Amino acid sequence: MDLYLNDKTALVFGAGGGLGGAIARSLATEGASVVVADIDAQAAAVTADAITQAGGRALALAWDIGDLSVTEARLQDVKSAFGPVDVLVNNTGGPPPTPAAGQAPEQWSKYFDMMVRSVIAVTDAVLPSMRERKWGRIITSTSSGIVAPIPNLGISNSLRLALVGWSKTLAREVGRDGITANIVLPGRIATGRIVFLDEQKAKRENRPVEEVTAESTASIPVGRYGEPREYGDTVAFLASPRASYITGSVIRIDGGFLSNV
């Protein structure tokens, strides 16, 4: 299936990591020019190099999405390389595991700025151009915690859920401009983040990590963790003209893991 992304420019945040990198590679495979943005310049370069070696077009940018003072300059870098942003993939890191109660106000403010305020600000910066061209995709990667709150991820569950209300509201505002806004959420995708969370759970419960991983895998109807590429390919479809009637939605890529309707 041709996703018609050959003339599109995609900006992917967190693209030096597991999920962001998979999204960047899937978009590039479908022909998009991809800006690989990450706070870790070396990690961004690794993803961009993999894309170019496979015959795709990519630009690595060291970009801390939480630093709003650089937004305008970085977007100019994107425009100079590939043109204005057609596809924006908001993908930020998450806070450390914490309970919901007892967290310092400074912690809430820190991660709100990193995970919510930054996403909204960058989206606002690219929307005028999308509206002018009557086409755009805003895709925000969150967490399964927005559907079924994950124990000991109190800050993450709370702040990521704020992005769901924002994205749904935005979808209604920009739909007639040819722009869609959707949320994607991973279940258990085999990335370093999942390994870390399994290790943390094993430590808290004084159990072998292999036991925790086996227990987690057994709870997934398809019987395995997802591959990062499966996540990336779903995002690539949502980014394409073929997904023009999907907006204001929350798309689960979880192998049936979440039991909620």
Rank of each mutant, 00 (worst) to 15 (best):
T29M: 03
D124M: 14
F112P: 06
W108Q: 11
S118Q: 08
A100S: 10
A148S: 07
S33W: 01
T140L: 03
G83S: 03
S80N: 14
A81M: 04
Q103R: 15
L163D: 04
A44I: 01
Q76M: 07
A73S: 14
Q103I: 14
P149N: 02
S26K: 07
E132K: 05
L27W: 03
L61W: 07
L27S: 11
A100N: 02
Q53N: 15
A148H: 00
R117F: 06
V46G: 12
A50I: 03
Q103V: 13
R117G: 01
A37N: 07
M115C: 04
T52K: 10
W63R: 01
D86A: 10
K134Q: 12
D38E: 07
T98F: 02
G66W: 09
M114N: 11
V119F: 01
R57S: 09
R131N: 02
L153Q: 14
I150D: 12
E30Y: 06
A22G: 14
A125W: 06
G145M: 06
A32I: 01
V87Q: 08
Q76I: 10
N152Q: 15
L159A: 13
I139G: 05
A81Q: 11
V164K: 08
S129E: 14
V35W: 01
T71Q: 02
G66T: 01
A125D: 08
A60G: 09
E72I: 11
L61E: 13
S109E: 13
